[in-house]
């Protein structure tokens, strides 16, 4: 089922997640993320796909009482990023994230993109300028904002803000980028822009995306995982999932009989 030349960039092994109130949100999830491929997580709302995605950069650490179990291995150094000894900040510096709703900081466009570098202690103006330009180009936003870099980021349109957030995540050369329903708050044109952008990005890095939109998953992803009630029902190449899934539940969901 998996092409031979694929390299595993990250992998969850028997991963379980519990919220502070005791909810067992994810049950024994095993999913590989292949290097320079887009993996999509689909499933009805509440199935745990966002919860799973947010585990990859330890977002759940922000709220007390949440508990991880099992492993998420990050290669090439074979680090279990859930390990208590591994610093969440280190994980987040390697794996960046784009959120459901654009969440730019109340700063200039320039400072938004430079933020990740500043957090890393980078203050060299020329270095920052180069990186900001590169990231904005990478997020195909450069042409629209190059003359207004000192403007407040809030003044951008929703689609531009989301691309800004992608540039922000891109500027630090992450190994993996997580997208949590990145187009759900955007109009169709902005959505197309972002989808094209992701296809461009996968030339350089590994992508995991949560989407509520099955067409989107079918359009852009190489692999798809179908989740339901906190369980991984099926994982396979996207073409197979959408044309010839092996599980009945997956088929029902894909064909719209359920959900």
């Amino acid at each position: 089922m998996v092409k031979k030349q694929e390299i595993i960039k990250a992998e969850s092994r028997n991963f379980n997640f519990f919220y502070a109130d005791g909810t067992h949100a994810l049950k024994d999830i095993n999913v590989p993320l292949y290097e320079k491929r887009i993996t999509a997580l689909i499933g009805p709302s509440g199935c745990g796909k966002s919860t799973f995605l947010r585990s990859f950069n330890r977002m759940h650490d922000l709220y007390p009482g949440n508990k991880y179990q099992g492993k998420i291995i990050l290669n090439p150094d074979d680090t279990n990023i859930l390990d208590k000894k591994v610093d969440a900040i280190e994980v987040r510096m390697r794996i960046s994230m784009v959120f459901q709703k654009p969440n730019p900081f109340p700063k200039s466009i320039y400072e938004n993109v430079a933020y990740g570098l500043r957090v890393r202690g980078e203050n060299n103006k020329r270095m920052l300028d180069d990186k900001v330009e590169e990231a904005l180009k990478g997020a195909s936003l450069w042409n629209e904002v190059k003359d207004r870099l000192p403007d407040l980021a809030f003044n951008l349109s929703g689609g531009q803000q989301q691309r800004l957030c992608i540039a922000r995540a891109l500027a630090t050369d992450p190994e993996i980028m997580l997208f949590d329903e990145p187009t759900s708050a955007l109009d169709p044109i902005a959505t197309v822009n972002i989808e094209e952008l992701m296809s461009e990005l996968k030339k350089k890095l590994t992508i995991l995306i949560v989407t509520h939109n099955m067409q989107q998953a079918a359009r852009i992803s190489d692999y798809t995982a179908y989740m339901y009630l906190g369980k991984m029902i099926e994982f396979d190449e996207t073409d197979i999932i959408f044309t010839n899934p092996s599980k009945k539940e997956t088929e029902d969901y894909i064909t719209g009989k359920f959900g």
């Binding site: 390299i7 150094d77 610093d87 900040i89 280190e90 510096m93 890393r120």
Partner: peptide
């Protein structure tokens, strides 16, 4: 593993985090 190049920045990042923390 996996023929991926070893991430040389990792030690740098770790030192940085310790400093910032």
């Amino acid at each position: 593993k996996n023929n991926l190049p070893e991430n040389k920045n990792l030690d740098l990042i770790r030192a940085l985090i310790i400093k910032h923390k």
